[in-house]
Amino acid sequence: MNNRHEQEKKQFKQLFQKEGVDAFEKRFKVLDCFLKIEQHVTCREITDQLKIDGNPMDTEFVEETMKFLCRFGFAHMVQFEDGPRRYEHRHLGMHHDHMVCVKCGDILEFKDEVLEKKQAHVAAAYGFHMLQHRMEIYGICSKCLKSRELMMPLCRARQGETCIIKSFSGGRRAQMRLSSMGLRYGDAIEVVSSQGGGQMVVATGDSRFAICHGLAEKILVQHAPPEMDADTPLTHGHGPGRLPGRKISLSDMKQGQEGVIVRVGGEGTLRRRLLEMGINRGTHIYVEKYAPLKDPLEIIVKGYHVSLRVEEAANIMVEDVQSVKHP
């Protein structure tokens, strides 16, 4: 790295002198400082760093310099979503893409050969000659993920995030407001939009709610596990732990699991029979066991035992599935 930096400095000298750019010494200091910082920096950060190093300069001047540096290929300007302009080293021939953590602002560089090749293929498939590309992935870095296990107030969740309501730190009236909306512990909510200190709009299932900041502060949530997404189709339903918002069919549930019925399907006769046995929307059921031949299965509903075939159970959609010791 250092060699390169030396090289760059030399090149810098040459180019700038050739172009006749003024204030060469000062600009060199900017370059030096920039090269030292191995991060994606903003002008501000460079200015600050210069100050610390004992070289106070105008922000405008630094900006201008950075523009020059970009022009000459020493730096590369990137602007991530809604953020300030950042600059990164442009090591010639070393293209890389970025991952940006929306929580802590960390910027990770990565380069994936397969991805790069794929991009070229795709372009070629469209008869497009790719000159250059830029790819940014926004998400949460591993450090932030680890510290995620803790609960946080809903107001701090980001747009697009899905969280699970874990707890509530408000008074009785606020609690009642929450339950009157139909939001319960364990419900998954997706943050549709959030504005700084104002209202949030969240969605659960098909309903949307506007939650004032005050209430959003009191609702404590946890991030939903990565597989959880209201829109992804479900391929299998076996899993320990709670998976609210996820609908699986009764036939996919295992012995010892319980859940709440969201939908009773099936054709006429079957459906009627299920309903008159008390198996309807909103009912809690517990899977007691499967028969020795794996079919039929026995469930406990409304306090009594019912048996039904696996193919019949497939018509019943259940959510809130979790494993319990006793029904």
Partner: peptide, 12 residues
């Protein structure tokens, strides 16, 4: 033809 539903109570 179709089978009838099997749904049946298991009394105590």
């Amino acid at each position: 033809g179709q089978d009838a539903p099997f749904v049946m109570e298991l009394p105590p």
